[in-house]
Structures are given as structure tokens and as C-alpha cells.
Amino acid sequence: MTTSNSGVRRRLRRTSGWGFVAPYLVLLVAFGVAPALYGLYQAFIVTSVVGPSTFSLTQNFSDVLTDYRLPGASLNVLLYLLAWLPALLVIVFGLALAIDAKRTKFAALTRFVTYVPGAVTGAAAALLWLFMFSPQVSPIGGFLRLFTDKSGSFLSDQTFPIVLSVMGIAAGAGGWIVVLYGALTAIPKDVLESATLDGANAWHLVWHIKLPLIRSYVAFILIVSIAQGFQVFVEPTVISAGAPGQVSRTWSINQLVYSYATDNSNYGRAAALAILLLIVCVALAVFIIRKTKFYSIGDR
């Protein structure tokens, strides 16, 4: 093959690369980038109590940052992340590796059962979890009663991060187990076989072969999970809807965002807080990408 010929091919390849991505790119701009940019613009529009809205680069951000509810909500979210994220990762990785280690029927059943709670959403999830965490009617009532206060209620500020973590793990672990299991089954068999022939045991395989080979998935799961944790919304909303008065409606940062938008119709503040939340998540994502050399994997 001549040089000019391969140059044409390379150009053709680049063009078809664009062609394959183009339809998705249209959707990315229309339903991802454009709404996000509009949200960013909104963060600079200040809603006044009287008179027309004004433009300010800093007003909404400083209003949001000095809201007396923000420190409490931030602390709640941090406590939740500390309880939920490590437990989620241990359960997801532990189960996915165990299910992959020997693909029995029992393992397949476990994978199925771990997924089911995640399929329950909305009103159904509210019903399910309210009953689960009401000591009088819960299947684990005997266990919950060990922690109830004088009024017989289980929910309190101390137990709330734990309750949310249990919900978050039950609803979220199964999906990641499916993803991780898929990644593990895609590891070529001969790689594992030759390592076994060299005397590697099951633990060596996990630490030195499997986890390094799927590290890009690990980074991806970390990035998305951290963002989900910072943006926790559904779980506290469900619980506070069912137990009015026991739990604040602005328990988490994201609930505060919704409260600005729905209770006060102040979209500028809602957008400003959402963007601050996003900045934290993107900063952590960039950190993880750097640490795991995420994008260099494609170069090998």
C-alpha cells in the first residue's frame, strides 16, 4: 500500500468517525449542552420581590451560599456519602467478583435478586420503604425496635443517614453489579488461564489481573456514584413525604435546589446552587480521571 493511499484511508476513517458520532452529537447539544448552558445563564438572573429581574454575576451565588439551610444540608450530604459510598462500593465489588468467580445458577439468582429493588421507583418505592422503616409494620421491625426513641419512631437525625444508605444501596447496587459483572466476563479467558497456570490464586487474580483490567469501569462507577451521592434527592424526599415533620424537606442540597424552584419560584437561585453542586462533582471527576489515567487506556 502506498503512503498517499493510506493517507486517504486515514482521512476517510476520521470522516466516518465524525459520521458515526454526528447523530449522537445533535442529541448531546440539544438535550445536554444547551439546557445546561441555559441553566448557567439562569444562574445570573436575579428574581426581585418587586420589579423586573436583574442580571448579576454574583448575586444568586452569594445568596445561595449564605442561606442558613446550606451548612446543615451540606453536612447531611457528607454524612450520607460517608455511610453510603464505601458500603456501596464494597457490596458492589464484593458481589460482582463473587458472582464472576464461579458462574453458578445460585450466582445468577443472586445477581437477579440484587437488581429487583432498583426497579421499584416513584410512588411504589415510597410505599415500600415507608413500610420497611416503620417498626410496627416492618419485616425487620424487631431489629428496628432496638434503635427507636421514646415515641416509638425509628426515624431521627442520627438514624436518617443510615436509613438513606440502606435505601440507596438496595436501589443502586444491583445496576452496578450488572455493569461490573459484564466488564469482568469480557476479560479474555486466556489471560486468566495463563495467570492460574503461573500459580495465581483467586485473590491474586482479583488484585493483579481483574481489577487492573477493569480500572476504567472502576473510575466510571466512582465518578457517577459520587455525583449521585452529592445529589441525593429521591430517598430523603420519599421518607420525608411519608413522615411529615420528622425530617426536613430541605435535608439534602438537591432538595434545597428543588425548594428554591418549586416553593419560591426562584429559578436563578435553584440554577446557582445546582451549578455549585456540579462544579464539586466535575472537580472530583477530573481528579479521578487524572489518578486512574482514564483516557490513556485507549492509547495502548
Binding site: G32, Y267, V282
Partner: peptide, 16 residues
């Protein structure tokens, strides 16, 4: 950008 849109809070997108 794809990764970032995945972690944008849904609250910021729904009204736009």
C-alpha cells in the same frame, strides 16, 4: 462533555 452531562443535577436541566 458526555461524562459531565451525566453528572449534571437533573434539577438544572428540567426547566430549560
Amino acid at each position: 462533555v458526555t461524562l459531565v452531562t451525566m453528572i449534571v443535577p437533573a434539577a438544572a436541566l428540567i426547566l430549560p
